[in-house]
């Protein structure tokens, strides 16, 4: 079947802090065909129409989380979103809200990364020697992996934070990304740092500030459910504050392999070496 080529108007928000005093929209006409993504359109503009257009991109396959932007007023990954999904000849592209603009469509995600770092997004253990020089894997059952698996798909694109109404009104709010990852590590059976992480989430601008609008989960391009993670985190915090919580030790390392004798004797080689 021959592919039908057409043209689409891209209305792109422009802002250069060195030149512009305010934001403005600029229109570009972009040829499209079936399967053309928003990112393809932006790359076309940069290569053929205006090389000064700034946007962030890397993997082009929905893995790196670089190309989050507001497409027709909803946050999407530009590489993961096809133009024909919108059934429109006009596509409006703006930078992600709730983050300072660096230039055009590129926003500064450092505040989000700082909040992410603040919740200690790594396995915390008490066996420092094993952490410094790992000898073997930690034991973990499939059920224990399932407890946090879907939350580990987060690619830190910032789309959940841009969709969150609380992040829009409270600049200090930890945000769905950081809180979701806080739960991801607290739920990990290998981890022993839940107590210190939950103290961080217990701050004035922490988990209890989430209104459960659910916009983060709806917008997440990877199908992670940060709103659910925050609810589970709240439950963990409530249980912890009432003196409950996980009592068992974090997962141990696998025992060393044991030497076993084969029960059936292997017959000798019939052909001599």
């Amino acid at each position: 079947m021959a592919e039908h080529a057409s043209k689409v108007t891209f209305r792109v928000q422009r802002y250069d802090p060195e030149k512009d005093s305010q934001l403005h929209m600029q229109e570009f006409t972009v040829p499209t065909k079936r399967g053309t993504t928003i990112l393809d359109g932006l790359i076309y503009i940069k290569e053929n129409l205006d090389s000064t257009l700034a946007f962030r991109t890397s993997c082009r396959m929905g893995i790196c989380g670089s190309c989050g932007m507001l497409v027709n007023n909803y946050p999407h990954l530009a590489c993961h979103t096809q133009i024909e999904e919108f059934h429109s000849n006009v596509i409006t592209v703006k930078p992600l809200p709730n983050a300072p603009i660096i230039k055009d469509l590129a926003v500064d995600l450092m505040p989000m990364f700082d909040r992410h770092k603040s919740i200690k997004p790594f396995i915390i253990r008490n066996d420092e020697d094993e952490m410094a020089k790992p000898t073997r894997e930690y034991e973990q059952l499939p059920d224990e992996v399932e407890a946090f698996e879907q939350f580990s798909y987060c690619i830190k694109c910032g789309i959940c934070v841009s969709a969150c109404p609380t992040s829009a009104s409270d600049a200090k709010f930890l945000g769905p990304q950081a809180l979701g990852q806080c739960y991801r590590y607290c739920a990990d059976s290998r981890d022993a740092g839940a107590k210190e992480r939950l103290e961080i989430a217990d701050s004035n601008h922490g988990a209890w500030h989430c209104h459960l609008a659910g916009a983060c989960s709806e917008a997440c391009p990877k199908g992670v459910d940060p709103a659910f993670a925050i609810q589970l985190l709240k439950r963990k915090m409530a249980v912890q504050s009432l003196g409950g919580g996980r009592k068992e030790k974090p997962a141990e390392i696998y025992p060393p392999p044991t030497e076993t004798k084969p029960k059936i004797q292997v017959p000798p080689f019939t052909v001599k070496k």
Partner: peptide
Amino acid sequence: MFRTRLRLL
């Protein structure tokens, strides 16, 4: 967990 207790209240 002070703020969590306030929230539970």
